[in-house]
Design a protein around this nucleic acid. Structure first.
Lengths: 233, 233
DNA sequence: CGGTTCATGTCGCAC
DNA sequence: GTGCGACGTGAACCG
């Protein structure tokens, strides 16, 4: 099921990779390579030893020594493998779009092929969890808050939680599962403005940003617009 | 320099990985594994064959069959490798923070160690390129626009390009290298509002969003706030 | 397919 | 270290 090659020449490596991908396997290549990307931007990597992962969905990832994100990558397009000039070359072309990645190996130190899993993860602790909590305990938003609906549509987009305050005012709630900055404050402001416009002119609309923490600039933005922040957890 | 093992037992795989990382190498492991993440969120992956890349900076990436992003990962913390119960286990703990990832292998099909490059890329086509273009040809913003400074500070943050229009009005320019949505329109609005507040009350301040394309909702947002959009490239 | 928003976003830079 | 915004963001969700 899992195959491997050590220090193959370009022809053997190309055949190995093509065969493996033909069988629906993923291919891991380690070797000295350089990359060229042209498309939404232009980016090239000098020659150096890297790990290249070619997935069954034709995602190609080029990983260097550090970081979570690949140094170069290609998604969505087709991938062609070839040994030219004694060098293994992957050409990843997003047929229609202009995005094109080329990975050229000076040498392949190691190649492995395997049949990877595609399983879904169990998740929790996300924004929708926070929504559950707020619906279960609306006082987290403000004392006496009464939720009416979630994802209520406005011209500016859906409001996370929509309801009424103890005073009868409309309350729009924006939820964030982590520290929030100015962008989140603006998002809430857009929703509140849209509601003020949509509802009767005399309707009182307030906005509450619910998150574990907030930056100073975001706090000021909220204050300027008469919006409030409610910390949770 | 590059070492490899085929179908090692847990003890051999653990020793191999520990040695390699001790030598500053990166380790690639392929095998049946399950993961547990606990921290900012909770997420777990069921057992399945995956590729695990353990980098010299102690980034650990767990890749499945599809997608650019890893199915699970850990960065920043320390990594401990151990063979317990005949199973290879990576424990990635962000010492102080709560983020913790555990990767437990039922079996290791393949292990490779190599010395990866950490080279910087040549980049172009980014937002700062767009800035160059706008400074070289200010008419891209609007006819007669005269840039005065870049990254001009405001209480809301730095304005990409700051200058004057033909009519003498202050013009704030926000640059985006690709299609923009409501968030970019709000960002420009924040800058313009900050400038209107900061400058003399009688100062005329306008805002221009420069980008290749804009969504309809963003266009409406701009219009509502008297801001404009200028397409480029 | 486009539009919008979420993310364990990550990453880089300035203060 | 925190704050802030860009990113070839990616990925899900919804029309």
């Amino acid at each position: 099921m899992t195959r491997a090659l050590s220090a193959p020449d370009a022809d053997r490596a190309a055949a190995f990779a093509a065969d493996a991908r033909g069988d629906g396997l993923a291919v891991s290549l380690v070797g000295e390579c350089a990359t060229e990307f042209e498309g939404r931007a232009e980016r090239s990597l000098p020659a150096g030893v890297r790990s290249v992962l070619w997935k069954p969905d034709d995602t190609v990832l080029v990983h260097g020594a550090t970081g979570r994100d690949p140094d170069a990558w290609a998604t969505g397009g087709s991938v062609a493998v070839e040994a030219t000039d004694g060098r293994l070359e992957l050409r990843c072309g997003d047929g229609d779009a202009a995005d094109a990645l080329t990975v050229r190996f000076d040498s392949v130190q190691h190649a492995a092929a395997f049949d990877p899993a595609d399983a879904d993860a169990e998740v929790s602790g996300t924004e929708s969890d926070l929504k559950e909590r707020v619906l279960a305990d609306p006082d987290l938003v403000e004392p006496g808050f009464q939720p009416r609906s979630t994802e209520r549509e406005t011209p500016a987009g859906p409001v996370d939680v929509y309801g009424r305050g103890r005073d009868g005012a409309v309350v729009a709630v924006e939820l964030k599962a982590r520290r929030v900055g100015p962008a989140a404050a603006s998002q809430l402001e857009r929703y509140v403005n849209a509601l003020r416009r949509d509802l009767h002119a005399d309707a009182d609309v307030r906005g509450v940003l619910v998150a574990p923490e907030i930056t100073e600039k975001a706090r000021r933005l909220l204050a300027e617009n008469g919006l409030s922040f409610s910390p949770v957890e």
